[in-house]
Amino acid sequence: MTLLSIVIDKIFKETKACAHCDIPCGIYDPHNAQMAAHTVLRMTNLLLDIQRENETKAKHDIARMTHVKEEHGHLVEDELGTLENDYFKPEHFKTYSNLGELIEKAVKLSILVRQNIDIESSKELLETILQISEIFYKTKNVTPIRVKSVYPTEGEIVTYK
């Protein structure tokens, strides 16, 4: 970013301008965000467990895991953006007064887990995504349920009955 851009960025208040893939297809699902959050958690676990017997291989694995963690952290943010901008309506935010706060928290956590190897934030990110998913299904007038995932993270996923 140039100096001019930095100055402008500091001076002006920011508003969101939508440039979405918005043929209004009506197909929305928090599943992708959940999978991405599980992946972030898994990569964080793997990074913490990395073996250093072969330093070249360790460096190689760290690079790959970090890349996947970064990618899926972004994916969480993108998927949340789609739900926030395309699916959730003002009445949803009114009915579920913590929805906006949860989305904001999840976005911040998705940045934090990319910046660090932070297991607690990764778990918190997943939990926040699960709470958003529960609200999503409630807005669809179905009952959300939490089930244990079959992923190595052994965390939960939210689906509905």
Binding site: I8, D9, F12, K13, E14, T15, K16, A17, C18, A19, H20, C21, D22, D78, G81, N85
Partner: peptide, 17 residues
Amino acid sequence: LSKFKISGHSMEPLFLH
């Protein structure tokens, strides 16, 4: 003058998300 942050991909390649 107003500042906006782009959300989405419909103005790519000029503006990225």
